[in-house]
């Protein structure tokens, strides 16, 4: 199949070659990694990236799950409208969606304008290029994805089961905790993996809203590759990103399989 050849030639081999270059350094095969893990600055970037990705995932899980739950209960017409309202931002580009937060959080932005006109602050706050601004934009970026993933999962829970729980005397809260939540767990894991890997590897959003101050792995990789032309350094970052992404996916998918109630 041409597609197989294309993936192997243009994806697998280039990525493996990129990773291979990190082992050919004069200081020994793992010297660039040793340098990475010893450098306070580089480790700070890795920690920051993990932290932002985890916080984004946690917020997106809660917000997405509640919203998806509400959508799943809506009657047909209203449900379609709500889903379309969630799809629209998802189909709008990441640059456009990140840019919106520049207008909102900027010096002349809405938040500053409102706070100043109310008289809460005298000087505009600088909210851009903080960890908070990156997280807000990331949550904004990934909540629609979480909603759509979870609506599908919740819709897949047969209504019969909810009715069976009610007929056996379960009130709404126990029904939620004992029936809906356990059945939605594999879907929650899928959603969490999508959001975590997406935010962990994002480039445009930290570039726009984090800048130099809030450098993340994606922006760090770009900076090393295209600004300082440190290709081995960039490849090291790339290798670490690949390992963490694949590791998270493997661990979580194993966990999802173990928690999957349908599995025998």
């Amino acid at each position: 199949m041409p597609a197989t050849i294309a993936v192997i030639l243009l994806l697998v081999i280039p990525v493996l070659l990129t990773i291979a270059t990190t082992f050919g350094e004069a200081g020994g095969p793992f010297s660039t990694y040793a340098a990475f893990f010893k450098s306070g600055f580089r480790m700070a970037v890795l920690y920051r990236t993990l932290q932002i990705a985890l916080i984004t995932t946690a917020i997106a899980l809660v917000v997405g799950f509640i919203t998806a739950y509400v959508i799943a209960q809506m009657p047909g017409r209203l449900k379609s409208i709500m889903i379309i309202a969630a799809v629209f931002p998802l189909l709008t580009g990441v640059v456009v969606r990140s840019f919106a937060w520049l207008i909102i959080l900027g010096k002349n932005g809405i938040v500053n304008n409102v706070l100043m006109s109310v008289g809460l602050i005298g000087e505009p706050l600088s909210m851009l290029y903080t960890q908070g601004s990156v997280i807000v934009a990331m949550v904004y970026l990934f909540v629609p994805l979480m909603i759509l993933t979870l609506v599908g999962v919740l819709e897949g829970i047969p209504r019969d089961l909810i009715e069976a729980a009610a007929s056996l005397g379960a009130r709404p809260v126990p029904t939620f905790l004992q029936v809906i939540l356990p059945l939605a767990t594999p879907g929650l894991i899928v959603g969490a993996v999508l959001v975590f890997t997406g935010s962990f590897t994002s480039y445009a959003t930290p570039q726009l809203l984090g800048g130099e101050k809030q450098m993340m792995m994606g922006t760090f990789l770009y900076q090393r590759a295209m600004v300082t032309f440190d290709w081995v350094g960039a490849s090291t970052i790339a290798a670490i990103m690949v390992v963490i992404t694949i590791g998270v996916v493997l661990i979580m998918s194993r966990m999802a399989r173990r928690l999957n109630p349908m599995a025998v």
Partner: peptide
């Protein structure tokens, strides 16, 4: 599994690797 790989490899890494190689 091969066709799942492009999803597993971060886009930014793929972009970098592709630039270097092609």
């Amino acid at each position: 599994t091969l066709f799942v790989l492009p999803i597993l490899v971060p886009e930014i890494v793929f972009g970098f690797a592709l630039m270097k190689s092609i």
